[in-house]
Amino acid sequence: MNNAETLDRRALRKAAPVVGITEPGYADHSVEAGILKSIGAEVRLLRWEGKRDKLLDMLPELDVIMIRDLPLLDREAIAALPAGAGIVRYGVGVDNIDLDAARQRGIPVANVPDYGADVEVADHAAALTLALVRRVVSRARQVDNLKWNIAQQEPIYRIAGSTLGLVGFGKIARAYLARMRAFGVDDVLVYDPYVSDDYLAQYHARPASFAEICGKAQIISLHAPATAETRHLVNADTLALMNKRTCLINTSRGGLVDTDALAAALKDDKIFGAALDVLEQEPIGENCPLRGLPNVILTDHTGWYSEASVRSIQEKAALAACEILTTGVPTHWVNRW
């Protein structure tokens, strides 16, 4: 199935294309509605209430569907969309979309990688790092329980002079590095097979294997996509290479970390702690083994968020939908054929 065939089908669509936005979404979708109105598109909020059958019944009427982390658009869901429809993912990650199934049905998938996440996520990663290393959250809890002068009962180590290990060296990782430099981090190791040594040298960073990072870095920050290659990169074996000063930060994808293995290491005080904005299972479940651990900081996948980033992501996602409905060729087309 080629792009020309997709465009031919698109030309046969009804005069008012339908764009569905899945809920839960954002507080207001007037931004998307205003942009899509310019091409005569109808915007529908898909209140599927987490019920898959209800969602599947809605899909055949859509020309474009716009989604966040949920729902999962697997092969069955994509088969329910009209051939030649389109999918827009608010944000960067597309691991909840079967890209091959969409390609086979001539359905372009677009994401929004340029909404400014490098600012917010880098800020959040730095905030988590400081909160973990300086024990801000646990100290606040202790003081609230009338504990005082904890001091060396729970050692705190200086950030300046620490070795920083980065997994992935994209825009967010580089922005995070710039923030950590301000706190005196000089020695930087990077595991990213897709980045050259010369490129790393421009940032005064050195290439390393992940095993080397686990053994040498006091702060390890994950900035890699969720792929078969990166799944459970942090596992029982790699955690065993770390030590009692290792601080693990994850603002990328929850699947990079084996939750059970990490929980076991934290319970046994094998590492200093972990600060995670993403989890393998989201939203967090009652039985998540990380809940309640004193050396863990958990946030609700909010690293991307600010009011500025929300408006930007809504605008750019709506423009991607417009591109699909008009030219058939979105700027950020992730499943090209």
Score class of each variant (00 low, 15 high):
residue 148 W to G: 10
residue 186 D to K: 14
residue 284 I to A: 08
residue 331 T to V: 13
residue 66 M to V: 15
residue 77 A to C: 02
residue 291 R to I: 06
residue 225 P to K: 07
residue 76 E to K: 02
residue 334 V to W: 06
residue 172 I to D: 00
residue 252 S to F: 03
residue 266 L to C: 08
residue 5 E to P: 12
residue 216 K to G: 00
residue 97 I to H: 08
residue 227 T to G: 01
residue 101 A to W: 04
residue 214 C to H: 00
residue 313 I to R: 04
residue 161 G to N: 01
residue 174 R to H: 02
residue 53 D to M: 00
residue 74 D to N: 01
residue 254 G to L: 06
residue 205 A to T: 04
residue 255 G to C: 13
residue 191 Y to T: 08
residue 176 Y to E: 03
residue 268 D to H: 13
residue 79 A to W: 07
residue 307 E to T: 02
residue 79 A to Y: 05
residue 126 A to N: 07
residue 311 R to P: 09
residue 179 R to P: 12
residue 68 R to P: 11
residue 44 R to G: 15
residue 232 H to D: 11
residue 57 D to S: 14
residue 178 A to P: 14
residue 294 P to V: 05
residue 152 Q to C: 11
residue 9 R to D: 09
residue 192 D to Y: 03
residue 335 N to E: 13
residue 37 K to F: 14
residue 189 L to K: 00
residue 337 W to L: 15
residue 127 A to P: 12
residue 152 Q to L: 10
residue 304 W to A: 00
residue 168 G to R: 01
residue 233 L to W: 03
residue 32 E to C: 11
residue 13 R to K: 03
residue 165 G to N: 02
residue 94 V to T: 13
residue 331 T to Q: 15
residue 326 T to R: 08
residue 219 I to K: 07
residue 83 A to I: 11
residue 287 N to W: 12
residue 331 T to H: 15
residue 57 D to I: 03
residue 118 D to A: 06
residue 227 T to D: 01
residue 335 N to H: 08
residue 100 D to T: 05
residue 300 D to A: 07
residue 209 S to L: 01
residue 325 L to K: 14
residue 165 G to M: 00
residue 61 E to C: 12
residue 276 L to E: 10
residue 74 D to K: 03
residue 280 E to Y: 11
residue 322 C to F: 13
residue 18 V to L: 10
residue 188 V to R: 00
residue 282 E to S: 06
residue 337 W to S: 12
residue 290 L to G: 05
residue 148 W to P: 01
residue 203 Y to A: 10
residue 138 S to Y: 09
residue 225 P to G: 06
residue 127 A to L: 10
residue 95 D to K: 08
residue 14 K to C: 09
residue 324 I to C: 15
residue 55 L to N: 01
residue 202 Q to N: 11
residue 180 M to T: 02
residue 87 I to E: 11
residue 156 I to H: 10
residue 253 R to D: 00
residue 126 A to D: 14
